[in-house]
Computed example of a mutant assay.
Amino acid sequence: MTVATDPSASGKRTGRRRLFHRFAPGGAARWTLLLALVVIAAWILVAATIDLWTPYDPVALAGRRLQPPSMAHWLGTDALGRDVLIRTLYGVRFSLPVAAGVLAVAVAIGCAIGAFAGYVGGLADGILMRLADITLSFPAMLLAMAVAATLGPGLLNAGIAMVVVWWPIYARLMRAQVLAVRSLEHVEAAVAIGASRQRVLFGHVLPLCWTPILVNATADLSQIILLVAGLSFIGLGARPPTPEWGQMVAEGATSFYNWWIAAGPGLAILSLSLAFSFIGDAARDLLDTRSGN
C-alpha cells in the first residue's frame, strides 16, 4: 500500500536538513554568520556608548591638519584637523539609523499598498501596480538622486528619496504573496462562512505573507547603507560637518596622498554592508526552505 506524501512537507524537511549541515558546528556558513553578527553588535555598541569613552568631539579640532596615522590619531586627521577615527565611529549613528528607518518606512508603505492591491484587486490594483512599475523602471540610484536633488541636501530628504525608491519592491512582493495565500482552502472557508474582509486579510492572509518580506528586508539593509553613503558622497545626503561615512569618503577622495581620510569610513561602509549581506543570506536559508542549494 502506498502512502501519499505532502510535497511541501518534504520540501521543508529537505530545507531543514540543508540548514542543519550549513549552520552545524564546522558548517560552511556558521563562522561567516557569527562574524557578521559580531560586526553588527560591535557597531551597535559603539553607537550606544561612544559618548562615554571618546577623547575627542567629532566636529572639533583634534590636532594638526592632514596628520597621517600615528599613536595619537590612529587614522590621522582630516583637512580641518579632526580625528578621522572618531568621526568614523560617530558615523554609525547616522548611517545605521537612517538605513533602518528608510527600510522600516518602505516596508510599511509598500506592504500596506501591496496587501490592499492584492486583496481588493480591480482598478485599484491596476493603478497602484502601474505606479510601482513606473517607479521600478528607473535605476535606483538615478531616481534617488533626482528626488534628493529636488528636495535639497540633508539626511531627511535623502531618506525620503530612498523610501520612494524602495516601497515598490515591497508592494509587488506583498501583492504576490497575498494573491497566492488568498486562494488557500482555509482562507476561502473563512470567506464562505461570512468573515469580514478585514478579518480575512489580517487574521488569515497577512500572517502567512511575512517570510519573504523579512528575508528581502534583511538583505536590503546592505544596499540601503551603500545608497545612503552614495547620496552623501555626491552632496545630496548629510551636510558638513556631520560625520557621515559617504561625506567623509568624498572629503578623502580629493587627495590620493591623504588616503587615510577615506580609508576609515570606506572600511566602515564595507564592514557593515557585508555583515548585513551575510545576515540576509542566512535569513534566506533559515526562513525560505524552498531556496536552492
Rank of each mutant, 00 (worst) to 15 (best):
residue 58 P to G: 03
residue 60 A to W: 02
residue 62 A to C: 08
residue 62 A to D: 00
residue 63 G to K: 10
residue 64 R to M: 09
residue 65 R to W: 12
residue 66 L to E: 15
residue 68 P to K: 05
residue 68 P to W: 07
residue 68 P to Y: 08
residue 68 P to Q: 10
residue 70 S to A: 10
residue 72 A to K: 10
residue 72 A to E: 13
residue 74 W to S: 02
residue 75 L to R: 08
residue 78 D to H: 12
residue 78 D to R: 13
residue 79 A to L: 06
residue 82 R to T: 02
residue 86 I to V: 14
residue 88 T to R: 09
residue 88 T to H: 09
residue 88 T to N: 06
residue 89 L to W: 01
residue 91 G to I: 03
residue 91 G to V: 03
residue 92 V to A: 13
residue 95 S to W: 12
residue 96 L to F: 11
residue 96 L to H: 07
residue 96 L to G: 06
residue 97 P to K: 10
residue 98 V to L: 15
residue 100 A to Y: 08
residue 100 A to I: 09
residue 101 G to W: 14
residue 102 V to H: 11
residue 106 A to I: 07
residue 107 V to R: 09
residue 109 I to F: 12
residue 110 G to W: 08
residue 114 G to W: 11
residue 115 A to D: 07
residue 116 F to C: 12
residue 119 Y to A: 06
residue 123 L to H: 13
residue 123 L to G: 11
residue 124 A to G: 13
residue 125 D to F: 15
residue 128 L to T: 11
residue 129 M to V: 05
residue 131 L to G: 11
residue 131 L to W: 09
residue 132 A to R: 06
residue 133 D to R: 01
residue 134 I to N: 02
residue 134 I to P: 05
residue 137 S to W: 11
residue 139 P to Y: 03
residue 142 L to V: 11
residue 142 L to H: 02
residue 145 M to T: 09
residue 146 A to L: 07
residue 149 A to N: 05
residue 150 T to M: 14
residue 150 T to F: 14
residue 153 P to I: 00
residue 153 P to W: 00
residue 155 L to H: 13
residue 157 N to W: 01
residue 158 A to C: 15
residue 159 G to D: 04
residue 159 G to C: 05
residue 162 M to L: 14
residue 163 V to P: 14
residue 163 V to R: 14
residue 166 W to C: 11
residue 166 W to A: 14
residue 167 W to E: 04
residue 167 W to R: 10
residue 167 W to K: 13
residue 167 W to C: 09
residue 168 P to V: 03
residue 174 M to L: 01
